[in-house]
Amino acid sequence: MEPRYNSFENMDRFFDQMRQSMFGGDRGVGRGFDDSVRVERTDEAIVVVADMPGFEPDEIGVRLHDDRLHITADHDAGDEGSVRRRSLRETIALGEAVDPETVTAGYRNGVLEVRLPLEPDSHEGIDIEIGE
């Protein structure tokens, strides 16, 4: 018998599509449209906190690529002939240069926290001389 998927997967897909159409896909620093993922900026870092109850740490992926933080998670639970699947996909446009060597992530009690330290002096910019 082929496993059946319940409506949670369809609801997740629906909300992802709605989020894409309403907000252009990427969540930016300081922007938020639900309480499950919060993005905060301090003087030293960007901190992303995601409420993700029910996931195990090995079911969660965190990737930094092209000034965006990508969070993915997949959880399958089932019994005889029935499978329930939960998925999460978030892309957060950082908008600032972070130091990829010092990024840290932790997951405890259903909450993922990713700390992305800013590149030193990246928010101050640089002066560029104009040649003749």
Rank of each mutant, 00 (worst) to 15 (best):
E113F: 06
E124K: 13
D16G: 07
Y107R: 07
R38Y: 06
I128P: 05
G61Y: 05
E90D: 12
P117R: 11
G78N: 05
R84F: 10
D34G: 13
I92W: 04
D66K: 12
V103M: 00
E40Y: 01
S7M: 10
A73C: 11
V103I: 11
R19H: 15
M1R: 09
N109Q: 12
H70D: 10
P3Y: 08
I126K: 12
D76G: 12
I71W: 04
D58W: 01
L88V: 15
L94S: 04
S82D: 15
E80A: 15
S36Y: 08
L112H: 03
V103C: 01
V47D: 03
G54Y: 00
T102C: 00
E96N: 10
M22I: 09
M1L: 09
R85I: 09
N6L: 13
D79R: 12
M22V: 10
Y5I: 12
G110C: 05
M52K: 02
V39S: 04
A45T: 04
D58I: 01
F15P: 03
F33N: 11
R85W: 04
A97Y: 02
R38T: 11
E101Y: 06
M11E: 15
T102F: 02
E40I: 09
T102P: 02
D43L: 08
I128L: 15
L118N: 05
L88G: 05
V47P: 02
A50Q: 05
E113W: 07
E96V: 15
P117F: 04
D34W: 07
F15L: 11
N6K: 12
D35I: 09
D43I: 06
G106T: 10
D74T: 15
P57Y: 01
R4M: 12
T102N: 06
G32Y: 00
E129C: 07
G61K: 09
I130T: 10
M18P: 00
D26V: 10
R38Q: 13
P53L: 03
D51E: 10
R19S: 15
E119D: 08
G28W: 04
A50N: 03
R38D: 07
P53I: 06
D99H: 02
G32F: 02
V114S: 00
E101P: 00
D99L: 04
T104F: 02
L94K: 01
V83W: 08
A45Y: 00
G78P: 04
D79Y: 13
P3G: 08
D51L: 09
L112D: 01
G125K: 08
G54F: 01
F15R: 10
L88H: 06
E119Q: 15
T104Y: 01
D79P: 06
G30M: 02
F23W: 09
E129N: 08
R68T: 14
R31Q: 15
L118K: 12
D127K: 11
T91S: 14
H123A: 15
G61N: 08
E59K: 03
L64F: 03
R89H: 11
E113N: 07
I128S: 10
P100L: 04
M18Q: 11
D67M: 03
